[in-house]
Amino acid sequence: MLRHRVLVSLGLAVSLAVPVCLAGVSWTVIAWLGPVAEMAGNADVVPVLLHPLMSEEQRQEWISEQRAAHPEWRVEEVSPSDLAARLTRWFPYLSDLLEDDGGMLTPLIEITTRDPESVGALEGSPAVVAIGPRSSVQRTVGSSARAVGTVLVLTSAMLLLAATVFAAVWVHLELYRHSDEITIMRLVGATEPAVRGPFLFACAAPGVVAAVLAAVGTSLAVGRLSVLTASLGLPDLRLSIPVLAMEAMLACGLPLTAAAVVLSRHAAADL
């Protein structure tokens, strides 16, 4: 009897842990995609590398000239430290090289424009070493990342909905199984806390196990994905504490909330 009960509870815990774990992995990937997705909004930014031997004054003068010549452009300087931070975000293995505020980096200018091709006019300038891509690659990458993020948000919402429905059905079945017992307890004078306590505990225990399983599953999945991204030269996926906390809250909270709601309705129908 006890063994059967333990097996059923474990089955319930695993069934709840799966959608919660997948939702946690989705959130981790969404957070990882964040910086790429931002590119979609800055689609018309063209990076321009200036000559490394230019002095600060020359650089400022060049920027002023461009602003005057092209009022439709927004010309902004990216400091070496900002550039170093951006590079280490996506290529962490460069951090040792860039740790001195990116002192070795050449000055970078970003030109925001609706017509990226017009930046090509700078190619002949002796101050310019190189001009970045003027096509919509960045925009495509950014919008693709955003689309993937949206799909993952929807997927995680569906998974959570599935987990909620599962928890509600499970609690209803539990209540159906214990309905007589609960009714009898009420009829012989048990107070509501005395009636609800064991039932809530019976629902919470698999929830706690589900939270642990979801956390372990998410850690393993994120670890595997990190290996994959590392092999592609992309930054690591990192499992954040808020994601784990959210998983624990969902795994424990969904069955408990469902149990509390179902018990209240049962109590109202019983009286």
């Binding site: 007589d180 009714t183 009898i184 009420r186 012989v188 004078g189 509501e192």
Partner: peptide, 24 residues
Amino acid sequence: PPRKLALLRRKVGVIFQDFKLLRS
């Protein structure tokens, strides 16, 4: 209210037609 109802039911012993025993 439910809390007082539980206290009242402790003063009442009910012998149910269908026994209402806990099978477990």
